[in-house]
Design a protein around this nucleic acid. Structure first.
Lengths: 252, 252
DNA sequence: ACTAGGCTTCCACTGAGCGGAAGGAGGGTG
DNA sequence: CACCCTCCTTCCGCTCAGTGGAAGCCTAGT
């Protein structure tokens, strides 16, 4: 007796990635059992795979026995072209922008139909901000997301517009209305949101262009309200976005 | 016929990590054949594994057919506790330090017997700097490395001291001499190197302490020569290190 | 002492993984 | 145009790496 009943079709690679995928922003430390549960794997299987990953430094074990993402994976991750050059180039401008606005500053790119946050400087804690570096959010209810969506291929826009889910009472869920906004984003050169993702948080964002053409990222800030200093914020954002764009231009 | 002759003992996990490990600072884009060669795997095996990894977003394929580290791995990597809080907290101080010195600024931690660079701001290009964010170097010929080594457990120090390899004509290869230097690093509170890693590059580094006790990181700068402004550099470094330390203190 | 929970080890069955071979696809050269 | 060379991709039957139920551990809580 004994033997097994492994779910056929499942590969080791998919199992390993399921385990790694169990970690996220609010689950940076997980026990064996939690990992197994979240990856939907039997505990002994998870145990063995995790043991191997740990031996190779892909995971690490805390003194208390929990598992965390290992330094090897961090070193590997920073090689990803998400950010080659972009983050380093943007850093000083993000700080300038922060100094000028004292708001939470975001640098983000589009990854499929989501915003991927590359960097963040935190402003006043009174404004609720859900994004963190490395996290993903939908494109349509965020400032940086709207900018990226406005400059995305038609195919991507269509896909996003076809499934607008209400997140707060202010989320835009009518495709036609969002499409009109995207048109404005392109003509005006900036996007805004008013509590569409989080109550109490508004945002302003502008595109970052390489060679003054392709939109490769978006730069945004989150503030408690848009009041009447919006022009000042947009101006500050534009200066920073231009600076970043100049720093990264030149390549293909 | 057919069948296989797979090297026994090799696991899928080790094969996958060998493939991922094929990427490094100077090899961010690799072709299938290069990946297979660097991971010492047969091409068809590499092909299948890479295909799966790509399907899961762990790797990505460039338009030209080469493979790069994927965004999923980047998102995962930023969850690593290498840097939770530390990088974000340090960022403004690194910029201040850069503004004050115009030198290349480094933030690093110890990973085993190596320095792991967490962040870098580039100064004058005339000074040759080999480190990059995410890369590793030996502890003993670098400024940040000496600081970290000086505050490492005796066991680690012994291991490092037992295998000092000459890198430049100025590299310290006598264990006794290095041990004396480490003693000075502890008493003086800063470390220096003079072309020990790279000809034409000198460095100054100080520890970053959590709760004014444990050394959790090191902060350093690279300059063309140590001339006579060393006291000013050390002072600037200390201010920044203190600031970072205060920002991250409080936890265990 | 007993219970409950999570962690670790064991092991025999088996299908997922293996890689040699062969078949493209592209590009350079005589 | 024919040839070659290199790199990419697909195929497939053998086999051993991987699997997970069961059982034993080790805490911590009652």
């Amino acid at each position: 007796m004994a033997g097994n009943t492994s779910r056929p079709g499942a590969t080791v690679v998919s199992r390993v990635l399921a385990l790694l995928g169990a970690f996220d922003e609010n689950h940076r430390r997980l026990t064996l059992t939690e990992l197994a549960r979240r990856a939907e794997l039997p505990v002994p299987t998870a145990h063995r795979l995790i043991g191997e990953l740990t031996a190779h430094g892909a995971l690490a074990r805390t003194p208390s026995g929990e598992y965390v993402v290992g330094r090897q994976l961090w070193s590997l991750g920073v090689l990803a072209p998400v950010q080659t050059g972009l983050l380093e180039a943007a850093s000083p401008f993000l700080h300038d922008l922060y100094a000028a606005t004292l708001a939470t500053v975001h640098l983000a790119v589009r990854d499929g139909t989501e915003v991927l946050y590359l960097d963040r400087l935190s402003g006043q804690r009174s404004v609720p901000v859900v994004s963190t570096v490395g996290s993903r959010l939908p494109l349509y209810p965020t400032g940086v997301g709207k900018v990226l969506l406005a400059h995305a291929p038609e195919q991507v826009q269509a896909k996003v517009l076809s499934s607008l889910k209400r997140i707060t009472p202010h989320t835009i869920t009518q495709p036609a209305r969002l499409r009109a906004q995207l048109e404005r984003v392109r003509s005006e050169g900036y996007a805004t949101t008013v509590e569409e993702m989080t109550l109490g948080a508004c945002s302003v964002a502008v595109p970052v262009r390489r060679n003054e053409a392709d939109v490769v990222a978006a730069l945004g800030i989150v503030v408690p309200s848009l009041r009447r200093d919006r022009p000042r914020l947009v101006a500050a954002l534009r200066v920073a976005a231009h600076g970043i764009g100049r720093s990264i231009s030149g390549g293909a």
